[in-house]
Amino acid sequence: MIQVQHLTRRYGDLTAVRNVSFEIGHGEVVGLLGHNGAGKTTIMKMLTGYLEPTSGSVQVADLTLGPDTRAIQRRIGYLPENCPVWPEMTVIDYLHFQAALHDVPETRRDKAIAMAIRRADLKAKATASIQTLSRGYRQRVGVAQALLHEPDILILDEPTNGLDPTQIRQMRELIRDLAQHATVIVSTHILQEVQAVCERVLIMRAGELVVDARLEELQRSGGLLLSVEGDPRPTLASIDAIQSLTAVPDQPGRYHLDAPLDCAPQVVENLTRAGIPLHALEPQRRDLEKVFAEVNEEAAHV
């Protein structure tokens, strides 16, 4: 669906994005993460055609950014972090205006606006002036305008910004619903939101793409957790794949193995041969916060 190859963007001597490549398939929900200044917003602006890359290419299906920018933009719904709205307009008037900008045919506009209002849960505020809305409701107006033309791709920059817990839950449900028909890219600094709705994560650091992996794989790549009777260390010392084996503090009989998952059968075999009772052997799961911290700690030591 989306192919990004060697994407680079420079501002004078500053390289905001450097040689970034990735592919995103139809229906994927992908989280784009990184500290402020990592290049996330620059990536999104280039994907949407609002910013030209210094070098590299972006393809959407059989279209190429540059010669086909307008055609690509018709397939994208974009929610910028601070979505521009006209405060003196009512919600429904603003959506009519946006529908015209999105080239929604007049015969379909009323239906498209009604659908966007329903999906963004704006029915109670449809006739209200935007300047009277809370930050959370303004955010939902931004989401509604991104949905009007039923895009193939949705790019959401901080979609839960300003929302209360109930609205956040509704936004998560909406993103899951949208993913049934569209590709969704979510950029946020709230890692829990990525864990809640995304199946894959791209992590940017200083303009470079340093992680591109499925969330499940990242969370399972923390080694193995072993629960046994007795001390397994002498028995497992002969397994070369185990980099380290350390006792878990305050948990007798539990050990952390810094080792790949595929060495688990050999661990079981050695313990069984030595007659050491095995209670559990499972992947050591990590949350996204830990993964994100590890990525940025590596940069601090470079």
Rank of each mutant, 00 (worst) to 15 (best):
D62N: 13
T64H: 07
T64F: 09
L65C: 01
G66W: 09
R70F: 12
A71S: 12
I72Y: 05
Q73W: 08
Q73D: 02
R75V: 06
L79I: 00
P80H: 10
P80Q: 05
P80G: 04
N82K: 13
P84L: 10
V85A: 02
W86K: 10
P87F: 00
P87T: 00
E88V: 02
I92N: 13
D93R: 05
Y94G: 01
Y94R: 01
L95W: 01
H96W: 15
Q98T: 04
A99V: 02
L101G: 11
L101M: 15
H102W: 15
P105W: 15
D110W: 15
K111H: 15
A114S: 15
A116D: 03
D121N: 11
D121L: 12
D121K: 14
A124H: 12
S129C: 14
Q131M: 12
L133E: 03
S134P: 10
G136M: 10
G136T: 00
Y137M: 04
V141Q: 03
L148I: 09
E150K: 05
D152Q: 14
L154K: 02
I155H: 03
L156V: 09
L156A: 02
L156W: 00
E158R: 09
E158F: 09
P159A: 10
N161A: 15
N161E: 15
L163S: 01
P165H: 08
A179N: 07
A179D: 12
A179C: 08
H181I: 12
H181M: 14
A182C: 05
T183K: 05
V184E: 09
I185R: 05
I185E: 02
S187F: 04
L191T: 00
Q192M: 13
E193I: 06
E193C: 04
E193K: 04
V194L: 13
A196I: 06
A196T: 05
V197G: 04
V197T: 01
C198A: 07
C198M: 10
E199P: 02
E199W: 07
